[in-house]
Design a protein around this nucleic acid. Structure first.
Lengths: 190, 190
DNA sequence: CTGATACTTCTGTTATGACTGACACATCAG
DNA sequence: CTGATGTGTCAGTCATAACAGAAGTATCAG
């Protein structure tokens, strides 16, 4: 491997490699496939945009996989194509604002998974109301579930409209609320 | 049960079945395996505790799978064993307070997945500080990531200590904040 | 127009983990 | 003590999805 550049696996600093590995593993447990999470981690730590080929070499995965993964990441707006003068190849860089990252992941997953489920749930409730085979308990529970989901949903929608600065304010405000409610909390804790 | 109880697949009301199917599918996309989510949905809609055998019959899955799934669900405290007078068999019922359900799922996933990742990240940052091969950008990004995770973590920990009633208050308070900040928001929205 | 380079799409292979059915253990009635 | 019932465990099978390598397409330089 001293010369021939066949299947070169470019080495990475140990801490960087460890981070990428853990990040990929975490993504794997969260419904994101490993390669995509790893590529994102690599780009997140990179000081300059990378080409697909470099990414493949650094992570030791096939170029085809990198191509597909990059497309996914661009769709999720977690990375972007950046043109480089005098280079025909596509270069990619990661979104570095972590608030944006979580916001976009949340947006995507909600649109793809919870919104359809929400719609289906609505249909279930409607169908259950018209179905005499559904007992009262099931009916109540379905309605409870729907009310809960709708509450969470509208809360989320409102949060989305907030600028990042307000988010920070809200979180520290949340801490204050905790501090205010905990010591003198007259209401029973359940 | 009129006679031969061989591999009986007890029918369910259509809306209930639809809900269970969707719930199972959703769980599947979220790292929970389908059977477990389906069993939880079935118990959630049931008006009385069920035995493993009944569950297997209603969902059309093997008793062994039900046994394993029930154990998981009990570990996550999403369902509980309930004794029934004059019946040796174990009966199970679901937690019906949805706030508790999400709280326990969040607790479990955090303990199993994000806490280890958090620890690993800490190690990465420490190792990176001592490693001259790690460039400044990577160093900064790792530190950013850690700060972000730590913020989210302490926020979450604080939220956990709140009783349910305060949660509701916080959410509606969040809405007020949105309403207050949105129209007069002087700060630029990015 | 032609060759080369970058990128994408396609298909076969592989690995992971979920599920089943059979077996082993525990508990209880008679 | 013994048979019967309920529960847990195990190994084999199967389905799914990620991956690699090859073939195909588009773009650009000369």
């Amino acid at each position: 491997m001293t010369d021939t550049s066949e299947s070169t696996l470019e080495p990475l600093p140990a801490p960087v490699e460890k981070f990428i590995l853990h990040w990929g593993d975490m993504g794997n447990h969260w419904g994101v496939n490993r390669s995509i999470a790893q590529i994102h981690a690599l780009l997140y730590l990179s000081d300059s945009p990378l080409t697909a080929e470099r990414i493949a070499a650094r992570l030791g995965i096939a170029r085809s996989g990198v191509s597909n993964s990059l497309r996914e990441l661009v769709n999720w707006k977690l990375i972007r194509r950046v043109p480089v003068r005098g280079d025909r190849r596509d270069h990619f860089e990661a979104e570095t604002d972590l608030w944006e990252v979580v916001k976009r992941i949340a947006e995507g997953r909600k649109a793809r998974e919870v919104d359809p489920a929400r719609a289906a749930l609505k249909e279930c409730v409607a169908a259950a109301e018209a179905d005499p085979d559904v007992d009262g308990t099931a009916m109540t529970r379905l309605a409870d579930m729907m009310a809960f989901i709708e509450t969470m949903n509208s809360w989320y929608e409102q949060m989305l409209t907030l600028p990042k600065t307000s988010w920070v304010a809200l979180i520290s405000l949340g801490s204050q609320v905790v501090r205010a409610l905990r010591p003198g909390g007259g209401s029973r804790p359940q």
